[in-house]
Design a protein around this nucleic acid. Sequence first.
DNA 1: GACCTGCTGCGGGATG
Length: 743
Amino acid sequence: MTSSPPSGSDRQSAFDRLDPEIRRWIWEQKWEELRDVQDRAISAVLDGSSDVLIAAATAAGKTEAAFLPILTATAGRKERGFSVLYVSPLKALINDQFRRLDQLCERLGVDTVRWHGDAPQSAKDRARRNPRGVMLITPESIEAMLVRRPGEAKAMLGSMDFVVIDELHAFMRGPRGLHLASLLRRLDALGGKRARRVGLSATIGDLHKAAAWLSPHAPSSVAIVQSGSDAPELRLQIRAYVDPVDTEDPDALEVDGKSIALDHIADHIFENLRGSNNLVFGGSRRRVEAVADRLRARSERADVPNEFFPHHGSLSKELREELEARLKSSELPTTGIATTTLELGIDIGSVKSVAQIGAPRSIASLRQRLGRSGRRQGVPAVLRIYVRERTVRLDGDPLDSLRLEVVRAAAAIRLLLEKFVEPQSPEGAVATVVLHQTLSVITQVGGDRADRLYEAVCGAGPLSTFPKQDYVTLLRAMASPEAGLVEQAPDGTVMLGRNGERLTSGRDFYAIFSTDQEWRLVTAGRTLGTMPISNPVGVGGIVSFAGQRWKIVAVDDAAKVIEVARHASGKIPKFDGVANEPVHDLLSERMRDILASDDMPAYLDANAAAYLLEGRQAFRDMELDRTRVLRAGRDTHVLTWTGTEMNSVLALALASAGLECSVLDIGVTVVDASPVEVAGMLGQIAAAPPSLEDLSEFVMNLRTEKYDDYVPEGLLRRTWVAARRDESLRLRDLASLLCRDQG
DNA sequence: GACCTGCTGCGGGATG
């Protein structure tokens, strides 16, 4: 989307409308002019009375775009209480923004205070005594304030004029976004005045959904300020490497006496990225460490100072901040090797290139990463994707020869150039958030009638999709003797129960997310290890773990234990399984397009181009343009070329008919079944597709969110079903397509 | 074999 540049007189007038002190500050900053986004945001904030959504690339000056007019509008405020609340998903971002805002605000005589777990207590105490100006806060700290000091919350945040939500896209999916939406609604209710909301977002995602998040009651009234498309020139390369035939662990730290693909990738990074600032995204902590270690070793061997450093969630804050500071200062050339930790807007200055190890699974994420490169005008953004393929073995899986890593990388680039972004999927965490917010509201007000609690939590906004009937069911479960979360007084008032007291008084209560829930894999009384499982698994399902295939014998949802038995059939597939981030339908579909077409993208290096030719040849040899059911030893692959969600539903449908399945990026593998058997089953599904309600009985790990253990199972099943209406409708067509194509 | 995000209140001790 583009916008015409504003005329000179408009530009002049927007600037002139700012507070005189702010104009002086702008002159002192030696800004030559206001950015387009800032210019238009000034009008949107000062002219309108609606909420405002500012969507622009990183470093386009979004923060100033919001704050210059907001500070102008609130300059004369005399009323006690904070006038502006700035909410951020990260403490580090709050610290960055505080540094940027504080000096401007000081000029204006406006107080600013950081309010998060690591912020200085003395400043908070000062703000408590004299609440005014701008508060920068995390959702969790809002929660803590409402629960611990509701009176103080009202005095400080009960009469705000504006709420600024930074990195809005980070709140658009997942329970944390629902949590924040609920908190903002509760803040509005404190003083009976709704603060105007200003959302800041990168140019990703669906703007109308973002507007609906900001203003659930009036999404079309939101003023949308989007930056003109000044996307820099993009330089792309996909580079392919191969692991030797006997590579056991392609992410190993060190392999004696031989080079694996990761060694060659490290060589290329060392030779091409040294001497400048860059970001390398590694995908997993383990791989990040393996790459960082190789680069450090290369620096030592070459007798040059190391300039490659890891960055991920398991590293201490000190180590991470050291790297961030080094990147930002630009004094020494620095390359950060990160998981997703450097994706969000922490200020790290500009980098020369972005690299990614492994084919992308999410275009939204790829775009976000790319946004970190080429941030200066006239400088091209540089993206390198390093993919690794295996040496194909004669006794290997036939899908190996399709070269799906190279194909997925090419498909991702195609979608990137098509400007595709995954829409956020329907939210499954509603019940957990409703339960959490119910406990929180009870703690805040001391207790209330059930109907008033429902109104306070679900009366409007994203939680209003939770039906009143379900709320009654949920409250009953919370009041049960086993749960003990709430109890009801004779006059009908719902109050905290014993467990409710315990839960709400703990430090862990403030966040709606739980730290990684690991499932323990047990076989014959022996623990194999732990693994996180995010996709539905059921008894009879197949998982790979510790280099083996396992069949699930039993699932203990409460204890998070999966009992497995060794499963002897076939080889472990050599491609990514489901424990990865799910892929979208279109990515899978484009993978098939790439294999079925003939054009050779210019951005493939010689190896990648050769693998793509090989994959296309295999695609033709196996006649995959005609057939979608493929024998692989004793197993059968069903190639749907759709995304993970659809494949999971198909796998459940097959499992409900007694087949053992595992889910692939591009389809489903049916274990120990012939193509004829599978085709017959698909025919039955096409003729009489099982209902999603029936299939939900086969999903064993419904409890994925923090407080799901307290949510009645039937309610979770309904939520699961509701989130998959689309897949349910497509099941019949998909099944008939699959058995029709069966050669 | 994905990844990431957050945290009160209080008491004790050191420091200015």
